[in-house]
Design a binder for these strands. Structure first.
Lengths: 354, 354
DNA sequence: CTGTTAGCGCATTCAA
DNA sequence: TTGAATGCGCTAACAG
């Protein structure tokens, strides 16, 4: 030997991979066939209690855990559902996820989560990925257009839409009547005596946003004049967007969601605009941040966790029974609180725009 | 025929299951072997461009998507990482998830999410489930005790701890120096002249909480007297818990997190206690709700998304290189803003407790 | 460069 | 009741 070096000089840093204990190992240890182990573990068939005991001990001793991929392959089911959301930072979606997660576990399923980062063009690939790894998919507030949704749902893979309804397509969906909700808001404003209102709109690709906007046509009939201001989805967006609005003659501002409205509110306070004396502010979603913001925001309550639960249930039904359910709507509710009031001055007559 | 009923009277509502297009189907359609299809899809080996084209067309026409379970089984890898969090409603965790999700996709992995609902006894099973369906697992703020962590990580399955360090065990972890952070807070308070401070503590099983508490021993040496008040993790908890505190002589309140502190703050405002004039309030995490709350909270900034990213990276390394990395710490920072000030009155001398 | 073969770990036939 | 055999869909090692 030239050196004292051991035979194997370089041991490549082996990746930490589980030493797989298989069902065969368990069978061997318990002195039974793998099939019996499977039966004991799944309760698929009656097994001699004595054998069952031996199997169970072996399982415990070896720390055996069935390989989910193998089970999935053999059963033709992954035991997993997928959820796509636009943005995890938006408190709206974690609440939905919470609901989904709960029902998923109830049905013994795992939950895969993907985030599109508000990028419609990213959704397609993510959904495809979910489809090939999950038994069913929940699309939360998908930003893609109806053509893409139609295509994605045409492959017969269970899909449920949350927060989106695609007219003309019979896709199971659970949503909120956004038009109705925003109409209620407009009614509230009209009754208070508001005439000119600004709407801080949501993400461009958001269906929930365009639905809200649709409500304004009706509102017009009631004498409400609504200016749509491009905004976004975060409090920052609201904070930034409100500047121009203040230079207009509006007496009330509705935000696409609570975050936007609260952001705008913060800016207004900085500028000395008092709410609701000088300006009525209305949110959407009811993120129940009251305790945190000390702002009793007038808003529309959307049952986010329930949306998740109901969506999960629909998906479950779709996967097991294969029933095509109708679009459903969760209850929502206008919560009139402290940020809406009659405009201080009688609203001026509509002057011709210059 | 007795009736006009069709032959098959009752078609049992077949569950909607994907018609599985397999790699063999694609091969057949393209006139090549399944292996070749696999090769062009994975770029595993050089393939005649002509064949590749035919394969690609076939894939497109048939709408083929590889079965993730089968791939996982064949490759011995699921292409999935799992994340366990205590509570999705706590804005802290979605932010971490966002970071994890981002790096996961970077490495072509999917993300499985589970929630323990702050129940330490639920974690065990969830982690087991994650382990048998994911290549690696990220435990975020696990509530279980160190024994259980030790056991769970002893099976050689890649696990990374986020927001938790287990002394004595060499488990890769990414966390924040909570003791140091809280010590900075205490120093800040001491320098302002505070003597008696209340701490609204976090979830009982939270390690991050007990670490924060540990800092108070040091603080004692600097003359700070800190009362630990059981609280929780939500703004509601803070709102409820602050009542008793106000009846004591403390001049400053620290919360386990921003939510608690803001909840307490809301209650104090209701009661006419002015901040920071009458009371100094300090949070933790820096949930950057400023825009929303219009409260410039003095707090400790914790880089949540970065924690997720770094945790994900560590896990990735662990899975591929198998390198046992040291516990790492993310940078945090005391952000002194508008809710902390010197106590209005000179703090009274320490009177003997009665 | 390509096709054939042999598992991956499990559930589920089918016999015994 | 139990064991042996088969296949889920795919990748990888092997020949050609």
């Amino acid at each position: 030997m030239t050196q004292d070096l051991p035979e194997v000089t370089v041991r490549p840093p082996r990746a930490q991979r589980p030493v797989r204990v298989t069902i065969t190992d368990v069978g061997a240890a318990a002195g039974v066939s793998p099939a019996t182990v499977s039966r004991v573990l799944n309760g698929t068939a009656k097994v001699d209690p004595a054998l069952a005991d031996r199997v169970n001990s072996a399982v415990r001793e070896l720390g055996y855990r069935p390989n989910a991929a193998a089970q999935g392959l053999a059963r033709g089911e992954w035991g997993t559902i997928g959820v796509l959301v636009p943005d995890l930072s938006n408190p709206y979606f974690p609440d939905v996820l919470k609901g989904v997660s709960a029902v998923a576990r109830t049905h013994g399923r795992r939950m895969m989560v993907m985030e599109s980062d508000e990028d419609p063009s990213a959704e397609r690939e993510l959904v495809e990925d979910l489809m090939r790894s999950c038994d069913g998919v929940l699309l939360c507030s998908p930003r893609m257009d109806r053509t893409e949704i139609a295509e994605l749902t045409s492959r017969d893979h269970p899909v449920v839409l949350v927060n989106r309804v695609v007219p003309g397509l019979t896709i199971p969906s659970i949503s909120v009547d956004f038009v109705g909700a925003m109409t209620m808001v407009c009614g509230h404003l009209a009754q208070l005596g508001h005439r000119k209102v600004a709407y801080l709109s949501g993400p461009a690709a958001s269906w929930a946003n365009s639905e809200r906007v649709r409500a304004f046509d009706t509102a017009k009939a009631f004498g409400l004049e609504i200016t749509v201001v491009p905004c976004g989805s975060t409090s920052e967006h609201g904070y930034e967007a409100i500047g121009d609005v203040l230079r207009s003659e509006v007496t009330a501002v509705c935000g696409y969601n609570d975050l936007i409205t609260l952001g705008a509110l913060a800016r207004m306070r900085e500028l000395g605009v008092r709410v609701p004396r000088d300006m009525t502010m209305i949110g959407f979603d009811d993120i129940s941040l009251d305790r945190v913001t000390h702002t009793n925001l007038t808003t529309v309550a959307v049952p986010r966790e329930e949306l998740g639960r109901l969506g999960g249930e629909m998906l479950e039904r779709l996967m097991t029974v294969g029933q095509d359910s109708e679009p459903r709507y969760a209850r929502m509710e206008l919560r009139v609180r402290d940020t809406s009031a009659a405009p201080r001055t009688t609203p001026r007559l509509n002057l011709p725009e210059q």
